[in-house]
């Protein structure tokens, strides 16, 4: 699904990712953890196609295609969706417009006709209900005046409607109270599917109690220095990151 090979990325001439390798297969759920400044956000940003990140070497392929050659919107249409750490407030753009335009863009890419209004509304209402969101939300501006929890629920709602092949969730748990975390996690878990992959970038082990990953990677100083199964998360919780970093240095 996603293949990152020897990825080196600089921001303003400072190298942040220093030869990162990562393979995500269909159906897998991965968690990328690591201390602050390890390069977690940079990795998400480069995969999503944000400006200001210079790839100096290496490659990222998505389903065999060169991801770095694709425009931001092409990545989304091909099935790669980023859940933002800080979802952007877009005053004046109603949620319903965004959802409709995004779904239409994806369907057009797949050669499908646009959904008729009643079908579209039915789909949206169903997903809203699942995320325990009121339908009045559709006519509110995207994320404007939303609480932290509402913003994150909105990110997952978009995923439920757009059904990406690969969902990349950047610190989806930050700023969530326990109730919101449960709703968000249920949303993400409902996306789990043999054909779909999920990558969570997170600072906290707490999220992994709710969305149990198949693989955990520790990112430190621009490289993945250790990978393991879910038991690695418990060890990190207990012992912190220092021992992994020391072990890798040896």
């Amino acid at each position: 699904m996603l293949e990152v090979k020897d990825l080196r990325v600089s921001v303003e001439d400072k190298e942040i990712l220093k030869g990162l390798n990562l393979t995500i297969n269909p159906g897998e759920v991965h968690a990328i953890m690591g201390p602050n400044g390890a390069g977690k956000s940079t990795l998400s940003a480069v995969i999503a196609g944000r400006d200001g990140y210079e790839v100096t070497s290496g490659s990222i392929t998505f389903e065999g295609e060169d991801l770095l050659e694709m425009d931001i919107e092409e990545r989304a249409r091909a099935g790669l969706l980023l859940g933002f750490q800080y979802p952007v407030e877009i005053p004046g753009v109603k949620n319903v417009y965004l959802l409709k335009a995004a779904l239409n863009a994806k369907r057009e890419h797949l050669g499908l006709p646009e959904l008729e209004a009643p079908e579209f509304m039915k789909l949206v209402r169903e997903k809203l209900q699942f995320m325990k969101m009121d339908s009045s939300f559709l006519h509110r501006s995207v994320n404007e005046g939303f609480s932290g929890g509402e913003k994150k629920r909105n990110e997952i709602l978009q995923m439920l409607i757009l059904e990406p092949k690969l969902a990349l969730l950047d610190e989806i748990d930050s700023g969530l109270d326990i109730d919101a975390l449960k709703i968000v996690s249920e949303g993400v878990n409902s996306l789990r599917d043999a054909g779909r992959s999920i990558v969570m970038v997170t600072h906290y082990q707490r999220l992994l109690d709710y969305i149990v990953p198949d693989h955990i990677h520790v990112l430190s100083d621009g490289k993945i220095i250790k990978s393991g199964d879910k038991s690695l998360a418990f060890e990190l919780e207990k012992r912190g990151y220092d021992w992994v970093i020391e072990e890798a240095a040896q």
């Binding site: 919107e73 989304a76 249409r77 952007v88 004046g92 753009v93």
Partner: peptide, 21 residues
């Protein structure tokens, strides 16, 4: 960026933001 990251073409994203203005 946020709109394009959901698959909206750049022009449509600009259009929506212009309408939002």
């Amino acid at each position: 960026f946020a709109l394009r990251s959901r698959g909206l073409g750049e022009e449509m994203a600009r259009g929506l933001l212009t309408l939002a203005f």
